[in-house]
């Protein structure tokens, strides 16, 4: 494990033409995923996580969307800018996708069973009978009770979490080598969530399926991911192993996120501490660090120049887009203390 490169994304940039101007939603994103790896992408709401993966899948509406640069290679071959037919070849089959909004991938006028069976018929050439048998197995595996009856129901008859599980079932139908899961468990209670995460982990370790997991739930990241990318304002601001990100956060934004979580301490209802301020306007992103206006450690250079990703030569895999991590920069006491606070409960 860890040697077979499945997906390599480099310098991906995506814009949207809107009434008010051009939104630079994704600004030069690089990451890669190996077979059997679970990579989590976390970050601020609106920072470009969904747009990043939708561009890879070739499902950004163009116009108004436009991929202005970069590449995405699946098993070595380019998948950005493929024509519709070529894109359909890998979509659903090589890469399965669970959408953040279930209704973008489920058809409201078709029963759940027919939709999953359709995927199986198209990509795996199964007969109607075989397809509906597998569809029912998939619903059982994703813990939907009374799978047989549920297959004949329409999306509006499902609860939020049942729709999510139906979509997970559909995305797994063709045993993809890469699963892209955009907020797959937001509507699941923690017991079913744990079962679904275990199912995904089983597919990952048994079949070597790779997973890109987009989520705001840091507990889900802690439970599932090997590696993590933290995004902010269209860029990756920190990346590393899950332990690097949780215990040795190197970017002030990552720390800000950890400090904003409620603590599970009885009676002690300390007011939650959101990061002050708001993210930069993506119509005209700042020339300096995108986090400078909100960062407690901002220095003069931060407002002028956007930092590159820096890493310690002894740990090249853990990198942060922050001037504090530049070689020779003063090591701030602040970051170190915050890490202590964040990892020992508040």
């Amino acid at each position: 494990m860890g040697t077979h490169r499945l997906l390599e994304v480099s310098n991906l940039s995506v814009e949207f033409e809107t009434y008010g101007g051009v939104v630079q939603a994704v600004r030069g994103v690089d990451f890669s995923v190996d077979a059997g790896e679970v990579l989590a992408i976390v970050g601020e709401s609106g920072c470009g996580k969904s747009v990043t993966v939708q561009s890879i899948m070739g499902i950004i509406p163009m116009p108004p969307g436009k991929i202005t640069g970069g590449s995405a290679k699946l098993k070595g071959s380019e998948i950005l800018g493929l024509d519709a037919e070529a894109a359909n070849q890998f979509r659903g089959k090589e890469i399965g996708m669970i959408f953040q909004d279930p209704m973008t991938s489920l058809n409201p006028t078709m029963t759940i069973g027919a939709q999953i069976a359709e995927t199986l018929k198209v990509h795996r050439g199964l007969s109607t009978k075989q397809a509906s048998e597998i569809a029912s197995e998939l619903l059982i595996r994703t813990r939907i009770p009374e799978a047989q009856k549920r297959l004949n129901q329409y999306p509006f008859e499902f609860s939020g979490g049942m729709l999510q599980r139906a979509m997970i079932a559909q995305s797994l139908a063709c045993s993809p080598s890469l699963l892209i899961a955009d907020e797959p468990t937001t509507a699941l209670d923690v017991t079913i969530q744990a079962q679904i995460l275990d199912l995904l982990k089983e597919l990952q370790s048994r079949d070597g399926m790779a997973i890109i997991l987009i989520t705001h739930d840091l507990a889900v990241v802690a439970r599932t991911a090997h590696n993590v990318c933290v995004m902010y304002a269209g860029q990756i601001v920190e990346q590393g192993s899950v332990d690097d990100i949780f215990y040795k956060s190197a970017h002030p934004y990552t720390l800000g996120l950890k400090l904003a979580m409620p603590s599970n301490v009885s009676q002690q209802n300390k007011k939650l501490e959101p990061i002050p301020g708001s993210p930069p306007d993506l119509f005209s992103p700042p020339s300096g660090c995108g986090y400078a206006a909100r960062c407690p450690h901002a220095m003069r250079i931060c407002h002028k120049e956007n930092p590159p990703l820096f890493s310690d030569p002894s740990q090249p895999f853990h990198a942060a887009r922050c001037w504090l991590q530049a070689p020779g920069a003063p090591k701030t006491q602040g970051l170190y203390q915050h890490n202590l606070i964040a990892s020992h409960g508040q």
Partner: peptide, 17 residues
Amino acid sequence: DEPISALDVSVQAQVVN
């Protein structure tokens, strides 16, 4: 009904406040 499920923890904190 699940008013903060799609928000990052900082914006969650902002909305809850």
